[in-house]
Design a protein around this nucleic acid. Structure first.
Length: 358
RNA sequence: UCCUCAGUAGCUCAAUGGUAGAGCAUUCGGCUGUUAACCGAAGGGUUGUAGGUUCGAGUCCUACCUGAGGAG
């Protein structure tokens, strides 16, 4: 269990992504009542650029601003630096980048991203890291990893030196990098463990590498992270992969897949994907997933959902996102239950025998 | 009855007489710490009809058909 200033989070947990102070398509009531999500993500990069972290601070941080009283983890912007390739320049002191909104130039440093996340008031903050592209050669991966380690040290130094009276209670997680190279990953991990953080993340996965490699890196890193502390693999995964990450010791995951794919018409079920735009669902009276008990599946047909999608109606995004996130969170609930019951191995086998999502 | 304008993909429209295209729609893919209600691909045509001029016609000429506007 993760004890945060905004409640206890049972692990292993999947965290819905709410980049811009909203899980797109959903109200906080959907998240809390319908999905019972205990923790969601926010993003330093996006919120710093718009509406600005100082404004959010005035509204009582992200929690007050977006009316969410459960836990929030904020990503540092390291991944945005990676995906904004071309708009940025990485230097020793930090990353110089141009806003994707208006081209303004900004500098993120390990220190400034801690400050921004303090203003956002998240329960868990992430250290600024460099997320290298895949593939990358060993020498470049080493340089990148070493920079990530230096940045992590600076972030922690700054974090510990924050003035007691204004400091927001918050955990800070460093991020293991090192490309797909075992030696680099292990060296990075060792350095970061010495920071004695409250939790650790494995980053740089799901950047285009084959699935086996993501799993291999997880296999390598997670067991060597302190077992009594939460271990977070960033940016994963497909629904059927969730139990496999858990089996490797992962406590926390997040991914845009359920929410983004929902908006793009891809609904996940235990029987595989339902691509709702397909003509075969034009007059299908069945729910998306007969086994699902979400609001969408309890009340609406595939034909209706297809109609909403084809008509570009905004309700589609809401109903589809409710379903996909419920599917993800139900998988995690089932996993947690089976762990408590001592039946996780059987549950893992059940999931493995299911039809893969694609 | 006459005059003018217009008929090109399902829709709205491009195309100096020289390989008929686009957007939307349709169908199908993709999406992994959200620059993403996004991106990509495919199918789809006797250019209103019938003649003519020309090496070559969506384009020029003639007649007809359909529609819009105008005159009487």
């Amino acid at each position: 269990m993760l004890h945060t200033p905004h409640g206890i989070v049972e692990t292993p947990v999947f965290m819905p992504v709410g980049t811009q102070a909203t899980v797109k398509g959903l109200t906080p009531a959907h998240l809390a009542d319908e999905l019972d999500a205990k923790i969601i993500l926010g993003n330093t990069y996006h919120l710093y650029l718009r509406p600005g972290h100082e404004l959010i601070r005035q509204f009582g941080g992200l929690h007050g601003f977006m009316h969410w009283d459960r836990a929030i983890l904020t990503d540092s912007g390291g991944f945005q630096v990676f995906s904004l390739n071309g708009l940025r320049k990485i230097r020793e002191d930090g990353v110089l980048f141009r806003s994707h909104l208006n081209g303004d130039q900004h500098l993120f440093t390990p220190e400034s991203t801690v400050d921004v996340q303090q203003a956002l008031g998240s329960d868990i903050a992430m250290v600024l890291d460099e997320c290298p592209a895949y593939p990358i050669d060993w020498h470049k991966a080493r340089k990148s990893m070493e920079l990530t380690v230096r940045w992590a040290r600076r972030a922690f130094e700054h974090f510990h030196a924050l003035p007691e009276e204004t400091r927001v209670r918050q955990a800070l997680f460093p991020i293991v990098q090192g490309g797909m190279y075992e030696d680099l990953r292990l060296r990075c991990l060792e350095e970061l463990v010495s920071l004695d953080a409250e939790g650790y993340a494995v980053g740089g996965l799901s950047v285009g590498e084959p699935r086996e490699l993501s799993m291999a890196m997880t296999d390598l890193c997670v067991p060597k992270l302190p077992p009594e502390k939460p271990r977070y693999v960033m940016g994963v995964g497909m629904p059927e992969e969730l139990p496999q990450y858990v089996a490797r010791g992962v406590d926390m995951m997040d991914c845009v897949m359920p929410s983004r794919n929902a908006r793009n018409g891809c609904l996940f079920t235990a029987e595989g994907r339902v691509v709702i735009k397909q003509a075969r669902f034009r007059d299908d009276p069945l729910p998306v997933d007969a086994a699902c008990r979400c609001y969408t599946c309890r009340n609406f047909s595939r034909a209706y959902l297809r109609h909403l999608f084809m008509a570009g109606e905004m309700l589609f995004c809401t109903l589809a996102t409710i379903h996909n996130l419920r599917h993800y969170l139900d998988i995690m609930r089932r996993i947690r239950k089976s762990i408590l019951n001592g039946h996780f191995p059987e549950t893992l086998r059940d999931f493995s025998s299911q039809i893969p999502v694609n």
